[in-house]
Simulated scan of single mutants.
Amino acid sequence: MSIACSEIVWLRGLLAKIGFPQSNPAPLHADNTSAIQIATNPVYHKRTKHIKVDCHYIREAVDKGVITLPHVSSDLQIADAFTKSMARRRHQFLVGKLMLLDLPASI
């Protein structure tokens, strides 16, 4: 999430420099509800004392309105088609979400 957040901040800065400032926060979809809660809740907990600079960076971006952290169910994580082994039906479902077409060869 930290790397994606830094990319969003960089892209927003680039767009602003070329004359296209963004007024709405960019959604950074995540499936880890614990990470979303930690990033959006500024309250210090004993279990979060090991959190590094990355979390504070994301929390700051959320507070400034640069990003939002909507939850995406693990069942709908399209990236899993590239990173995990799964049943054919599940793989076909996720690839279908990418809206890629396998065009037949011309005769």
Rank of each mutant, 00 (worst) to 15 (best):
N32L: 04
C55E: 00
D54H: 13
K84A: 02
S34P: 00
I58S: 03
A30M: 14
W10N: 05
K49M: 13
A105C: 11
V95T: 05
L15A: 11
V62R: 02
I51F: 15
D102N: 13
K52T: 12
L76N: 15
L15P: 02
F82D: 01
Q37G: 08
P70Y: 06
E60H: 13
I51H: 09
M86I: 04
I38T: 07
A39S: 10
V95E: 02
E7D: 12
Q92C: 12
V53T: 15
L101M: 12
H71N: 07
D75P: 00
R59Q: 15
A61Q: 05
T40H: 06
M86D: 05
D80S: 04
L15S: 09
T48F: 11
I67V: 12
Y44M: 05
Q77V: 06
S74T: 15
L15H: 06
Q92L: 15
V43Y: 00
S6M: 10
F82E: 03
S74Y: 05
I8C: 03
L98I: 06
L98N: 05
V66K: 01
P70Q: 07
H29V: 05
R89T: 14
A35R: 01
I3A: 15
K46W: 06
I38L: 07
L103W: 09
V43H: 10
Q22E: 12
P21A: 06
N41Y: 05
H45R: 14
V53R: 09
T83S: 08
I51L: 15
H29F: 11
T48K: 00
S85A: 14
P70H: 04
I67H: 01
Q37D: 11
F93Y: 14
L100Y: 06
Q77E: 10
L100M: 13
D75W: 07
G96S: 08
I36E: 03
I107D: 14
I8K: 03
N41S: 14
I78T: 09
L101E: 14
L98Y: 05
R89E: 15
Y57N: 08
P70K: 06
V43T: 14
S23L: 12
D80T: 01
G96V: 08
L76E: 11
K17C: 10
I67G: 03
P27K: 04
K49C: 06
G19M: 10
P25W: 03
R12M: 13
K52N: 12
Q77D: 07
R89F: 07
L15Q: 10
T83L: 02
S6R: 13
A16G: 05
D102A: 14
V62Q: 03
V72C: 11
L15Y: 06
T48L: 00
L14Y: 15
I58G: 01
A4I: 02
K97E: 11
K64P: 02
K17E: 15
P104Q: 10
F20G: 00
P42A: 05
A16S: 12
Q92S: 12
I36S: 03
S6L: 11
V9N: 03
I107M: 10
L69H: 02
P70D: 04
L101G: 00
P21S: 08
A87Q: 14
K84L: 01
P27R: 06
S85Q: 08
I58H: 01
P21L: 06
A4V: 11
A4L: 10
A39E: 03
L28K: 03
W10P: 02
L76G: 00
E7L: 08
S85K: 09
V53G: 00
F82T: 02
G19C: 08
P25D: 01
S73M: 04
P42Y: 05
T40G: 05
I8F: 04
